[in-house]
Structures are given as C-alpha cells and as structure tokens.
Design a protein around this nucleic acid. Structure first.
Length: 255
DNA sequence: TACGCTACAAGTCCATCCAC
DNA sequence: GTGGATGGACTTGTAGCGTA
C-alpha cells in the first residue's frame, strides 16, 4: 500500500520533471543560466513535495505501528485469557471427577446431541420429566435475550460477551437449576436455538415481503426464490469484528 | 491431507394458539 | 372441530478451523 503511494510521485516527477529538464541542455549559454534557475526552482519544488510526502508516510507508518502494537497486545491478552479459561475448565473437570465441587453437568458434544433425537436438549438438561420447568426456563431465557438487547441479526458467536454473560447470570438467578450446567451450556444452547429461529423468521419475513405478498405458507420453503440476503450477511459480518474473543464464561466448549 | 468438531443456514416437523 | 399462523426443535448439508 505504502509502496504504491510511494512510487507514484517519483514516476510523476520523472515524467513531468526530468524529461522536460534534460532538453534545455542543448540551449545557448545565455539561456543556460535562466534554465539553471528554473531547474533549481523545479527541483526545490519537487524536494519540498517529496519531503512532505515522506513526512506524511512517516506519520502513517507511526500510526500503523501503533495500531499493530495495540493489536499484538490484544492478541497476547486474548491468548492469556484463553489459557486461563482452559486451565479453569481443566480444574473444573478435574474437581468434578474428584467429586469435590458441585456436580457440574458437562457440555455434551454436538455428536452426542445429534444422537439424542427429538427432545434432546430437554433430555440433556435432565428435564425430560419436567417439561413445565423446561418451558419456564426457556421462556425466561428468551425474555432475557430481548431484555439485555441481544441483536437477533447477529450470530451467536458474534454476540458481545457482556450481553451473553448478562443473560447467563440473570438466567441463573432466575433459575438456580441452571447453575449445574458447565459454562452455562444449557442457557447457551437455548439462546443459540432462539437466535437461529429468530434469524430464520426475519429472513423469511423479508423474503416474503420482497416477493410481494403472494405467499402465505405453513411450510415456508417453496416460495423463497429471491435472494436478498447479502445485506444481512454484510451486517452479520460487520458485527463479527472480534467480539468473540472476550466471552467470559461461555467459551469453554470451543476451546 | 484427512479427519473430527463446531456453527450455521435452510428445510422440515410438531405443538400450541386463535379465529372461524 | 378445523385450518392457518406462529414459534420451538430437529435434520441435513456445508464451511471453517484445529489437529494428528
């Protein structure tokens, strides 16, 4: 980038400057002094211009170096946080195995969840016989999602860590039952599912509106031919500008 | 490079609510 | 009671990432 900008003025100077300046050398001695002065003037101008450019580039370099330093610091901090979280998880599982701490229900793998079939989340949460409790927890989590200002257009991993941890905290306070799930995975799963459905619904609505009005569907698949998703994609990728690194207590699974 | 895992989108099923 | 609307949950296919 800098190279490109750096090289441009030189080329320009060569084209407009030296080519013109070289010609008068064949002039008369009378005109030679005048040409010398003009040459000096032109060179001085170029010098000043280049000095200005250099200054500008130096300032830019300094800014970019500073930004780089900040980014590197952030990476180091994220790395340290990750290690701490991993250590934390190790300790949790170890003490879980020793039976020294509260019994924490570990985060089931996706594969495990897939094998479970219908009602797997309820089952995984140990609420297969307490559907009412599950519904109540789910309802409160959904409520909290709206209350803390969760952005439904944004993917789960891109949600701000503070928003998620707020949800987890409030959900635990509301339903102490949720405390037994390692890293609040149950709340996370409910939230994830909720977000997915919300995104899908809003996509669906948008598409339906874009289509005109023609569609009223129970099974919503057969009419969405128009593709107006790029906007949403752009939005969601905008949001994903690095928030996922600072999740407090929910990154345990992926790490 | 192959493999396993996770997250996501899209499609689909199912339960519930509500108007008729 | 029936059918549409709505929302939660599951399935499938795929992309990205880390690891052996």
């Amino acid at each position: 980038m800098a190279n490109k900008e750096n090289s441009q003025p030189t080329a320009k100077a060569n084209a407009s400057g030296s080519a013109k300046l070289m010609k008068p050398t064949g002039g008369t001695p009378k005109t030679a002094g005048k040409t010398n002065n003009t040459t000096k003037q032109v060179l001085a101008d170029q010098n000043a211009e280049l000095a200005g450019k250099i200054k500008e580039l130096e300032a830019r370099l300094a800014r970019e170096n500073a930004a780089r330093a900040v980014a590197e610091r952030a990476v180091q901090e994220a790395d340290a946080a990750k290690r701490a979280a991993e250590e934390n998880i190790k300790n949790m599982t170890r003490s879980d195995h020793d039976g020294q701490t509260d019994k924490l229900i570990p985060w089931p793998t996706t594969a495990n969840m897939r094998d479970d079939g219908r009602g797997r989340l309820m089952r995984a949460m140990g609420l297969e016989d307490a559907r009412n409790q599950y519904i109540s927890i789910q309802g409160d989590v959904h409520l909290l999602c709206a209350q803390v200002g969760l952005d439904f257009r944004t993917k789960y991993v891109h949600q701000p860590a503070e928003v998620l941890s707020k949800i987890f905290k409030l959900a635990r306070r509301e339903h102490p039952y949720l405390k037994q799930f390692q890293n609040d995975w149950a709340t996370a799963e409910i939230t994830k599912q909720y977000l997915q459905n919300k995104r899908k619904q809003s996509n669906h609505k948008r598409k339906a509106q874009g289509e005109g009005n023609s569609s009223r569907c129970k099974t919503h698949s057969h009419f969405d031919v128009s593709g107006s998703e790029s906007e949403e994609e752009a939005k969601s990728s905008e949001h994903g500008s690095g928030d996922e690194n600072n999740e407090e207590d929910n990154t345990g699974k992926s790490g």
